[in-house]
Amino acid sequence: MATWIVVGVVAALLVIGWAYHTANRLDRLNVRVDLARQALESTLDRRSVVVRAVAAEMIAGAPDGGYRKSDDDEVAVSARALMTLADRAERAAPSDREDAENALSAALARTDSRRRSPALVVELADAETRVMMARRFYNDAVRDTRALAQRRPVRWLRLGGHASPPEYFEIIERVTPGQAD
């Protein structure tokens, strides 16, 4: 009889220890998701700043004398659209950010990258690379958090609380001129 009590107490302690460890791990994963989201948003904001610089350069004209006079109106309209989309993307609510960023990426892909200054080409490529990396880190954190939170024992014991699981962030990755066709 005493043996069964000891076995029961040990089993209960093991379950409590596992639950405590899992709840702490889930909490750390949620913190990781929050930090990755902040990093993603800051890289997206940086890209918006670079896109505004691209648009300003389009309005001012390319460094080599750039655009023909007949292109001026079309280029100015495209540049204003880029600025508007960059502003919209930066100010978008978290639930609308994906759509705003996709619209910005599509508009940017429609511009002629050959007419940009070399410094802006490098800056934009760096910003887009950082966005891709930050998005992948964020989505990895979301995947790990969701995988742990969706395990049956974790759900049964409500170790994740009542919060909804984090959502993935899916945007268009860098579009090169060959891919845009």
Rank of each mutant, 00 (worst) to 15 (best):
R146A: 09
I172Q: 06
V50E: 08
L40P: 01
V31R: 15
M1E: 06
V49R: 14
L29K: 06
P177S: 10
Y67D: 03
E123K: 12
A79W: 00
V175W: 05
R158M: 12
A53E: 07
A79G: 00
N24Q: 14
T111H: 12
K69Y: 10
A106G: 06
R155T: 02
V10M: 07
L29V: 02
A149K: 00
V154K: 00
R110I: 05
P177D: 09
A56R: 05
G61Q: 01
S113I: 11
A36K: 06
R47K: 08
R158T: 04
N139A: 08
A81Q: 07
R130N: 13
S42H: 13
N30Q: 12
S48W: 03
S105M: 09
V10D: 02
A125P: 05
V6H: 04
S117L: 09
R97I: 06
D73K: 13
W156L: 11
R37K: 15
W4D: 06
R37D: 10
R114N: 12
V10Y: 01
R158Q: 13
M1H: 02
V31N: 10
A12G: 07
M1C: 04
T129G: 14
V175L: 12
D96N: 08
W4V: 03
V54Y: 00
A86S: 09
V121Y: 08
A81V: 03
S78R: 14
D27F: 09
S117P: 05
R152H: 12
R152K: 09
A93Q: 13
Q150N: 13
A92E: 04
D144G: 11
E74Y: 08
D72V: 10
F169R: 04
R110V: 01
F169L: 07
S105W: 01
R88Y: 03
L13G: 11
A36M: 12
A60M: 03
D72H: 14
V75D: 03
V10T: 12
A19K: 01
A109E: 02
D27N: 15
A106F: 07
S78M: 12
A86T: 02
W156G: 00
E173R: 14
T22S: 08
K69T: 10
V15L: 11
A79S: 06
D72K: 11
A86C: 03
P63C: 01
R52E: 08
A39C: 06
V51K: 00
D27Q: 15
V142G: 11
Q179Y: 07
I5R: 10
T145L: 07
I16E: 01
E57P: 01
E101R: 14
A62F: 08
W156I: 13
I16W: 09
A62P: 04
L44V: 03
V154D: 00
D112F: 07
L40Q: 07
S70V: 10
